[in-house]
C-alpha cells in the first residue's frame, strides 16, 4: 500500500528499511517468530561492519535450518547440534573470516551440548547466537532441556515436573564459567528497546572476534507463539512474565 500522496515518503526521508544483506525470500517462520528479528539483526550488524564478503554462517538443524535462504553471505549447514564443531573447523582454516553459529535451544543445549561446551572451553574465536524459546519448535513443540518448570508442551501436557523431567538447563550460565568465553550475554527481542540492545550485543560479539578474544555467546530469549499456542503479542507477555524470571537478561561476562 504505497501512498503516493504522502510527501514524507521520499528517498531522502528514509530512516529505516530492510538490510541489504537480507535476501528477498519470504521467511518461512511463523507470524511473530523471534527468529526473523534475530536474522534481521545479524544482517544489519554485518551490513554496518561491512563484512558481508568475509562472513560465514553455520546453519543449525531446527527452525533456523533455512537461515541460508535469508542472509546473503556464505553458509555451511551443520548436522544437528554440531554447528560449533563445524564453526571451529571453518574458523581455523580461514582465520581471517568472521564465523558465527546460529542455533536454537534443541540444537545448542540438547543434542549439541558437548560441541557447545568444548568449543567454548577451547575458546574458539567464534560467535555463537543461541535462540532460546524453551521448546522444540520445528518438530511440534516438544519439551526441551530449557522448558520451564510447569510449562506445558506436547510431550509434557500437564507441565514439566522437575522430579520426572529434570530441571531447565541454564547453559548460558554454564558457558560463562568457562575461561575460553570472553563475552556471554542474554538478551531478548520483544520490544524495540530490547531489539536495539541485542543489536549492540551482536555488534560487540563480532568486534570481539576481530580482536581474537575468544568465544562470544549471545543468548536471545525468544517466543514460539505456534508452539506455545498463543498469539505473538500474548507470547511476548508470557515470556516477560515467566521466561525472564528463570532466564534473567543481562551480561554474564564481558572481558
Amino acid at each position: 500500500m504505497i501512498d503516493t500522496v504522502n510527501p514524507i515518503i521520499a528517498p531522502e526521508n528514509l530512516i529505516y528499511a530492510k538490510s541489504e544483506v537480507l535476501l528477498d525470500n519470504i521467511m518461512h517462520y511463523c507470524p511473530g517468530c523471534s527468529h526473523g528479528v534475530v536474522n534481521k539483526l545479524i544482517a544489519e550488524v554485518i551490513e554496518d561492519m561491512g563484512i558481508q564478503q568475509t562472513t560465514i554462517g553455520i546453519a543449525p538443524v531446527g527452525c533456523a535450518v533455512f537461515a541460508y535462504n535469508y542472509l546473503d553471505i556464505d553458509w555451511q549447514e551443520a548436522s544437528h547440534g554440531r554447528a560449533p564443531a563445524v564453526a571451529t573447523g571453518v574458523k581455523r582454516l580461514l582465520p581471517d573470516t568472521f564465523v558465527f553459529s546460529y542455533q536454537g535451544d534443541g540444537d545448542l543445549a540438547a543434542i549439541g551440548t558437548a560441541e557447545t561446551i568444548h568449543a567454548c572451553n577451547r575458546g574458539e574465536n567464534i560467535v555463537m547466537v543461541f535462540v532460546n524459546n524453551g521448546i522444540y519448535g520445528m518438530t511440534g513443540g516438544q519439551m526441551a532441556p530449557t522448558t520451564l518448570p510447569g510449562m506445558q508442551s506436547s510431550t509434557c501436557p500437564f507441565g514439566r515436573e522437575a522430579s520426572r523431567d529434570g530441571h531447565p538447563l541454564k547453559i548460558t550460565e554454564l558457558l560463562a564459567q568457562l575461561p575460553g568465553t570472553s563475552y556471554v550475554t542474554r538478551q531478548a527481542v520483544h520490544t524495540a528497546a530490547s531489539v536495539r540492545k541485542t543489536k549492540k550485543a551482536l555488534r560487540l560479539a563480532f568486534e570481539n572476534q576481530k580482536l581474537n578474544k575468544g568465544t562470544s555467546v549471545i543468548e536471545v530469549v525468544a517466543t514460539c507463539s505456534s508452539g506455545w499456542k498463543m498469539t505473538p503479542v500474548q507470547a511476548n507477555k508470557w515470556m516477560e512474565e515467566n521466561m525472564f524470571a528463570y532466564y534473567p537478561l543481562g551480561d554474564m561476562k564481558n572481558e
Binding site: N13, I26, H35, V189, V195
Partner: peptide
C-alpha cells in the same frame, strides 16, 4: 525494529 519479516520501511521528516 520489531518486525520479524522486515517488511516495514520508515520515513521521517
Amino acid at each position: 525494529a520489531v518486525c520479524p519479516d522486515s517488511c516495514i520501511a520508515v520515513y521521517r521528516a
